[in-house]
Design a protein around this nucleic acid. Structure first.
Lengths: 205, 205
DNA sequence: TGTACATCAGTGAACGCGCGTTCACTGATGTAC
DNA sequence: TGTACATCAGTGAACGCGCGTTCACTGATGTAC
């Protein structure tokens, strides 16, 4: 974060980065605009040159998070092609990998309390992320006999819920609530059992 | 909340109740000691007659929540006996029912950031709640062939994760993130598919 | 039953603090001539 | 290349606010005699 004198050069992004780090360390509500400004080497008032206020800064952090998230999910999905099953499993892993690698973004997105409908840009990029998971679920559900096929959106909601639950309960440093299993294993086996329940993987695999 | 004059009568519990309501409305960090005191009809300083401070008040709310939670889970478990399957499914439903009926407690327990190891009493009652779910999982896993039986604690972690995920993503009023399905249905079907994956319910059920 | 007194729950004023936000300003940058 | 000037990113002082916490106090309660 080199300060080049009076003018910063790239303050906007420096503020977002500072916010992300603070959100990660202090929690979604422990984040303060003033501290983010200080960390970027700037007066709190300077923030207002780039953002409408505290909330707008968090929203930008979340928006960038959703963009990374969507890219990651999409990459995972592509990497599993042409197997619908492999693609689906890869997106599941990508979810947890994202939460681990970008905890600040993850918190801004899911725990900061900002509404997804705050701005058109935000809701658009959030929907893009969601669409990847739903696409993977739709592909996969083609392999289930039509009459016992659950709606793909339900299917993806199940996986999303389990992934999110694993992250929140076991992958965050919630003191004293550590699982006896690595979160990655927990999610992998959980999704495996779920898919077997759908008849998508063989009982003896 | 009748104030009986100078002495309140049951201020301690009134403060906990006020805290719960505020936590529910304002979020885990939006809660303030001063506001809870005001809502209980009392000076902020009066809180210190009953609690060591802000955190202790939240911890008490969480502790009461865990106690209710454990009772509810236990009741559900008992109500399903002697069928291990029915007992297990009932505990799953009880999880969501608790989150819906006691949102303030739920948030204090899982989203306020207080550590479960803050006090022996807290960790004890939290473990009691957890133990019920694990017991139900253990019972049920007896019906799985021994060689392909996952550890019961993994099993219960899966269900816990999915339940928690459904609550956080779809049962809370996260604006714009509403599921197209009622959370209860989502959890019911999700657990159903998972149990089928374990070979515990028949494919044609 | 009535009085004296110990207990202790709640008061109210005060504290220092950091917050988000505003405002008139200043000084670095880059462009026009 | 050098100068004048417009632009605008960041300053720094100030604001009002509500927070958690402390303290010496007061007055209601309930018990001993």
């Amino acid at each position: 974060m080199p300060k080049k004198g009076y003018h910063h050069g790239n303050l906007r992004q420096a503020l977002v980065d500072a916010a992300l780090q603070l959100i990660e360390v202090r929690g979604p509500m422990g984040f303060t605009l003033s501290e983010a400004a200080k960390q970027a080497g700037v007066t709190p008032a300077a923030v207002y040159r780039h953002f409408d206020g505290r909330e707008a800064l968090i929203a930008e952090a979340a928006e960038q998070g959703y963009a990374i998230f969507a890219d990651l999910m999409d990459y995972a999905y592509q990497s599993g092609q042409p197997s619908a099953l492999k693609a689906f499993e890869a997106t599941g892993r990508a979810y947890l990998a994202f939460a681990r690698k970008y905890p600040g973004h993850y918190i801004a997105m899911f725990e900061s309390g900002i509404s997804i409908n705050r701005s058109p840009e935000l809701s658009q990029v959030a929907n893009r992320a969601n669409a990847v998971l739903e696409k993977a679920a739709t592909d996969l559900s083609q392999h289930i006999p039509e009459d016992k096929r659950p709606p793909a959106s339900m299917f993806s909601a199940h996986i999303w819920a389990m992934s999110h639950g694993v992250v929140e309960l076991f992958a965050r440093n919630s003191p004293g609530r550590a699982s006896p299993f690595p979160p990655e294993d927990l999610l992998e086996t959980g999704i495996g059992i779920y898919l077997r329940g759908l008849g998508l993987v063989q009982p003896d695999d």
